[in-house]
Design a protein around this nucleic acid. Sequence first.
DNA 1: GTGTTGTGGGACAAAAAACGTCCAACCGGA
DNA 2: TCCGGTTGGACGTTTTTTGTCCCACAACAC
Lengths: 347, 347
Amino acid sequence: MDPLTEAQQKLMPEMTELLKKRYQILLTIQMEEPIGRRALSELAGSTEREIRKETDLLRNQQLIKAKSSGMTVSDEGLAVLDALKDFMRDVSGLIAMEKQLKSLLGISRVLILPQDSDDIPAVKSNIGKEAARLLESLFPQHKKIAVTGGSTMAAISKELSSDKKDNTLQFIAARGGLGEDVLHQANTIASSFAGKTGGSVKTLYLPDHLSAEAYEMMMREPVIKEMMNLYDQTDVVVHGIGNAEEIALQRQSSTEEVERIRSGGAVSEAFGYYFDKEGKVVYRIRTAGIQLEQVQKAPAILAVAGGRSKAKAILSYFKNAAPQTSLITDEGAAHKILELTQNREEI
Amino acid sequence: MDPLTEAQQKLMPEMTELLKKRYQILLTIQMEEPIGRRALSELAGSTEREIRKETDLLRNQQLIKAKSSGMTVSDEGLAVLDALKDFMRDVSGLIAMEKQLKSLLGISRVLILPQDSDDIPAVKSNIGKEAARLLESLFPQHKKIAVTGGSTMAAISKELSSDKKDNTLQFIAARGGLGEDVLHQANTIASSFAGKTGGSVKTLYLPDHLSAEAYEMMMREPVIKEMMNLYDQTDVVVHGIGNAEEIALQRQSSTEEVERIRSGGAVSEAFGYYFDKEGKVVYRIRTAGIQLEQVQKAPAILAVAGGRSKAKAILSYFKNAAPQTSLITDEGAAHKILELTQNREEI
DNA sequence: GTGTTGTGGGACAAAAAACGTCCAACCGGA
DNA sequence: TCCGGTTGGACGTTTTTTGTCCCACAACAC
């Protein structure tokens, strides 16, 4: 860290917290504008008075405007947000944590965003935004992108810029899967990605849970075969990471399945695979979808998951993840991951 | 100013004041250590409680140590002071003021130090220190240095480093002058300079106020002639700037002289010359000493004066000062100077 | 030796600031 | 037109800060 900044912090230890708080508030306003005090205090997890005090200050500094419909970030506020973006990551120790996580998880790129999406839902949007930026930076070289479902993936699609269209992009739903909420299933997300970027989309409508016979039969269908072929040529895989149990419940898995997941000690889930705490596959959903091997040979992989509640799952998944995987997460998750591994080392 | 710093200030407007306050306290402790709360509150012009609150914080930050003899700056504190030195000048707007003063006074170098030596006596030491650093940087090229008297000059001599000796340096008392306090007269100061730096010294013991006849006679003395010769070869002149009236009173000038100084509208005094507000010489002490012309043809000139009470005098002196003059002053004086000239422009 | 002076730290009532919590007035969209 | 959201004002209560003592102690001059 900059020695000047370090000296500043020595002289003003309260600076860091204060800066983080105000930056977070300003950021949340930007993400949710126009927004009022009460809604804001919900999102930021502070009391209304606290929010009021800070927003009064921000307004005096002309960083936000207060209309009757809510508060809005001014141009100056946007400039401040942008100017402080990297600095805030540094001052919060995020850059240091990124380094630690990189070596711990054995991957080349980790991006940690401020705060904890468990506490502040808006952080998810922020994660989504940065994941979107990262993904967009891959577009020039990588055209075939496989995407999975989940609310995290939905957040990314929301933040994809629709400025420059590229009709050579091809988005592939990584799984069939009608089990979950239609808004968050892979097909919907893939369509949304395509819509935002001007690319094309390949969807796959198939139930998640098939019987062995039905599965075998389906795999012989030309449509499905074509998809499996596409998975082989995938340039980028973008996926979330879930907590095994939560996902299983969401999917209304059969009791038999839940039992296998539980007894296998499954911790995390990603693109239909369940992993135990050592990163071994203990179960996979029997459906048409991208295979683990196909994921691992993809040139680029973006794993996106935030919130301290996902720390164990992330840790589990990365036990055996491909080294070319990039992790985009948040402070809460990162902190918890390091906490967990430190304790393990001490014992 | 750094755009990052600007953004920080936007988000934390209280930062600047707080930083300045704590930095100042830390600086004062360093200058006066070991020092107690009560003495410190006197120097810093704050209440004891205020000082206590801040020193408690500084102690928690391990920037100072509290012994029973008083508070002391720790090594870490020294590092912080050093790291923040330039930053504080920038954040306090001193760098901007330096630029303004440079163009206003028509000189190439202005150095402004924090705070006001009228309020905080310790600031004088700080001015002295920086003037000493500046002077030392001239030593390699400039060997013949003429110095005047005064408390400001005494402050410089205190801060001269005695690390590397240079016996080719030659210090010349710029004036005879037994009129003032022996500790602050040019001869003493010159000796002190020489002692600190390892150089030699040329002193000149002569009363300040001579009759016309005695003056003429003295000027024909070989010792005096030699001095006048030396003045011609001076490489650097270091001098203070005083308020005309104060100096006149200190010197116990005759009523006739005081009258001439008053009626001439003298505002400032430097090396025995009195200047009016337009920078014209209205009177000079009849004694052996460096001539104005000799000063002005010197390759380097350091004018050192601080405190808002000296603003008018500084302004007066610089109306006709040589462009190669460097001014070392403090925030209080600089602020007042700009205030005075702004008002004048508005009218 | 011994008294004096300055030190940091503890304590506590008073003053001030921050806080939680209402409410009125207002605007915009259904 | 009404409803749900907004801001800004207000105010009693709580928490923090502030001013001001005192005390035990160490250093220092004598």
